[in-house]
């Protein structure tokens, strides 16, 4: 089987094995390679908890960022046992190829991919353009929900340090590159939340000192797909002056939009040392006596 998309845009990226095209996915589905014990696992991860049920790509299984990946009590992700359960009941083994897609230019898909990476799941990819591009191309949707045969997924210890930053890590990081991926109004402190989104109760507006403002959407085309490597380099390297050797922390409001940017820097541009600060502004903007720049 074609292990990767042979798409010329994708082959330019630093880690082309992390992204697949809608064409490639459609071929895999047509060839019967999606689902089943040895097939590709296709997961839909949306902001809207009901969107999957209104129609999804054939063979896709739902994963919900909030209900499945967050700890129900503490503000944290599930632990190794919890993750093994989420994966096992979806028929996913440790060596299964997982393709994730979702709404909103793949924010929540990138977020799920990042959480999968905390647990070291090796082969996890995004569908370029996500749900919107698949639908815009007139491809098939179904309301049929697959029933995967549960398997044993090993309990893997979550390894936060390489790709996840906590507030203390960010305090220690001040002076090194930070990327604020929120809207310009949130960055400047005029808005305490995303335009169009709930007021999520930050006590202070502004940004972490020294953070560069690079709204996540600049990395996306109108159809939800990622911009080409050359276009991304023009933004992050030429314009923002980041270097692939930099130690970078990205943040937003709760860590979902910055997962998108984390994916861009890590997998499309090949930065080896990028962390997502998932506490983001809902933690920093509420924390006592942390420095804030406006």
């Amino acid at each position: 089987m074609g292990r990767m998309s042979a798409d010329p845009k994708i082959s330019e990226y630093a880690h082309p094995e992390r992204l697949v095209t809608t064409e490639w996915l459609a071929e895999q589905i047509a060839a019967g390679r999606v689902g089943g014990p040895d097939g590709i696992a296709l997961l839909e991860s949306d902001e809207d908890v009901l969107l999957y049920a209104t129609g999804h790509i054939p063979g896709a299984v739902k994963i919900d960022w909030h209900v499945d990946l967050n700890d129900p009590v503490s503000r944290d992700y599930v632990d190794g046992e919890g993750f093994a359960k989420v994966m096992g009941e979806r028929g996913i083994r440790r060596d299964t190829t997982v393709v994730i897609y979702g709404d909103k230019s793949n924010w929540w898909a990138a977020y799920a991919l990042w959480v999968f990476s905390l647990f070291g799941h090796d082969d996890v990819r995004l569908l370029d353009g996500g749900r919107a591009k698949w639908i815009a191309e007139g491809r098939e949707l179904t309301r049929d929900v697959p029933t995967p045969t549960p398997v044993d997924y090993p309990v893997a210890e979550r390894d936060d340090a390489p790709i996840r930053a906590f507030k203390d890590d960010v305090l220690a990081h001040l002076g090194k590159p930070l990327v604020d991926v929120r809207s310009p109004g949130e960055y400047s402190g005029e808005l305490l939340h995303m335009p169009d989104y709930p007021q999520e109760g930050a006590m202070r507006g502004g940004h972490i000192p020294g953070a560069k403002s690079v709204p996540w959407a600049r990395a996306a085309n109108d159809d939800g797909s990622f911009k080409s490597r050359a276009e991304l380099e023009a933004i992050y390297l030429t314009e923002q002056g980041l270097a692939p050797t930099d130690d970078v922390v990205a943040y937003c409001r709760i860590g979902e939009r910055s997962s998108h940017t984390w994916f861009v820097l890590t997998h499309l541009l090949g930065f080896p040392s990028v962390r997502n600060y998932d506490g983001s502004w809902t933690e920093w903007g509420n924390a006592v006596r942390v420095p804030i720049e406006k």
């Binding site: 809207d48 009901l50 969107l51 049920a53 209104t54």
Partner: peptide
Amino acid sequence: PAEAPTTRG
């Protein structure tokens, strides 16, 4: 919008 079924619900 139809893309917001939870809100519609």
